Amino acid sequence: MFQLWQLKIFLAAAETLSFTRAAKQVHLSQPSVTEQVRALEQSVGQPLFIRKNNRLMLTAAGERLAGRARELLAMADDTFRVVRDNPDEKGGTIRVAAPQTLCTCLLIPVLTRFVELHPRTRVEIRERNSSETAQAVLGGTADLGLVHGWPANDANLQADLVARDMPVVVMPPGHPLSRAADVKPDALAAFPLIVTMEGCRYREYLDALLQEAPVRPCIRGVADSVQALVQMVSAGLGVSILPRMAVDTAETALRVELRALSTIGEGLPICLLTVGREPTRHVAAFIEMIRLAVARSDEPMSTVDVKNRAGRVAVTK
C-alpha cells in the first residue's frame, strides 16, 4: 500500500517530467525520488513512467494515477483542514501561488492589509510561473493561485476572472512618447522594442497588441524577466509593453515612465485559480480582499516596505 507522501513525490515527477526537478520541488535528493517512484510502481504493479533518452513520459497507468492522486491529496488536505480549523478561532494558514510580478504588485499590498485584520492567520506566498501556479493548486500545495491570462483547460481547475490588466508602454524617463497621455500602437514603430522571452505570457500579450499596428517595431533586446526588461528600458535600449500590474512601481518609478497604450482590446485577464471546493473562512476572506483590490485595477496599487510591514507573511520560492 502506498503512502500520501509517495503520491506527492509521484505528482511532482509527473508534473515536471523530471526526477531532478521533482527532487528540488519536494526537497529530496534525486536518488530518493527515483527510489520512491520505483516503490510506488511495485505497489501498483505497473510502470508509471517510460524512461527514454533521459526523458520521462507518463504511461497510461501513470496518467490514471496522477488524476486520482490529485483527488486523494486534495481530500486529505481538506480532512486535515477541517480537523485543524477551530470554528472559534480566526486563524489558520493560507497558501497562495502566483508569478513574481503579481506577488509584488498585488498580493503583498493585499497581505499587509489582511494580516492587520486577521493577525492569527499565517500566509505563505509561493512564487511560481503561471503553469507551476496552476499545478500547485491542482496538486493541493496551494489553496489558490493568481495568474495573468487564462490557464490551460483542466476539468479539475476553476478559473475565475477577477480583473483585466490594461497595457502600458514602458519607456526611459524623458522619452519622446512620454509627452502623450496615451500611446497608439503605430507610434511604437519608430522605436526599438524590448521584449520578454518567447513562451512568456507577457510576450504573447505584446505580440497580440502589436497586431493592431500597421508596422511592427524592430526588436532590439530580449529579457528573461520583467526586472531585466525594466533595466534594459531604463538604460535607453528601447521601449516595451507590459500589463500595468506586471510593473513593480516601487522599484521602477525612478527608472522608467509608464503611459497607457491606446488599444481596442479588453486587457489581459487576471484569473483566480481554485479547485472548486468550499474554502475555509480565512481563505474566503483573503479571496474577497483580492477581489476588492483588483475591482478598480485602473488605479495604481499602493507600494509597501516588505521588510518592515509584511507581518506574518512567509515568502517561499
Results as ranks from 00 to 15, higher is better:
residue 2 F to C: 00
residue 6 Q to A: 03
residue 11 L to I: 07
residue 15 E to A: 02
residue 16 T to M: 03
residue 20 T to R: 15
residue 28 L to F: 13
residue 30 Q to H: 14
residue 33 V to T: 11
residue 37 V to N: 03
residue 37 V to F: 06
residue 38 R to I: 06
residue 40 L to S: 05
residue 42 Q to S: 14
residue 44 V to W: 10
residue 46 Q to W: 03
residue 59 T to L: 06
residue 60 A to I: 09
residue 61 A to M: 07
residue 69 A to N: 06
residue 70 R to V: 04
residue 71 E to T: 14
residue 71 E to K: 13
residue 71 E to L: 13
residue 71 E to M: 10
residue 87 P to H: 09
residue 88 D to M: 11
residue 103 C to T: 13
residue 108 I to A: 13
residue 116 E to I: 07
residue 117 L to F: 00
residue 117 L to C: 04
residue 118 H to D: 02
residue 118 H to R: 10
residue 119 P to F: 09
residue 122 R to Y: 04
residue 123 V to Y: 02
residue 123 V to C: 10
residue 129 N to L: 07
residue 129 N to G: 12
residue 130 S to D: 14
residue 130 S to C: 11
residue 140 G to R: 02
residue 140 G to F: 01
residue 145 G to M: 02
residue 152 A to D: 14
residue 153 N to F: 13
residue 157 L to T: 08
residue 159 A to V: 08
residue 160 D to C: 05
residue 161 L to W: 05
residue 165 D to T: 09
residue 168 V to F: 04
residue 174 G to Q: 06
residue 174 G to E: 11
residue 184 K to V: 08
residue 190 A to E: 15
residue 194 I to H: 05
residue 203 R to Y: 11
residue 203 R to I: 01
residue 207 D to W: 04
residue 209 L to M: 08
residue 215 V to I: 15
residue 217 P to V: 07
residue 217 P to K: 06
residue 224 D to S: 14
residue 224 D to Q: 11
residue 225 S to N: 08
residue 229 L to N: 02
residue 232 M to F: 06
residue 235 A to E: 11
residue 237 L to R: 09
residue 239 V to F: 06
residue 242 L to C: 04
residue 248 D to G: 01
residue 249 T to D: 08
residue 251 E to P: 00
residue 251 E to Y: 08
residue 253 A to K: 12
residue 266 E to S: 13
residue 266 E to W: 03
residue 269 P to I: 07
residue 270 I to M: 13
residue 273 L to P: 02
residue 273 L to C: 02
residue 274 T to H: 03
residue 278 E to W: 00
residue 280 T to I: 00
residue 281 R to C: 04
residue 283 V to K: 06
residue 286 F to W: 08
residue 289 M to I: 00
residue 289 M to A: 11
residue 297 S to R: 05
residue 298 D to N: 11
residue 299 E to P: 00
residue 305 D to V: 04
residue 305 D to R: 08
residue 306 V to N: 00
residue 308 N to C: 07
residue 313 V to W: 08
residue 315 V to N: 03
residue 315 V to E: 10
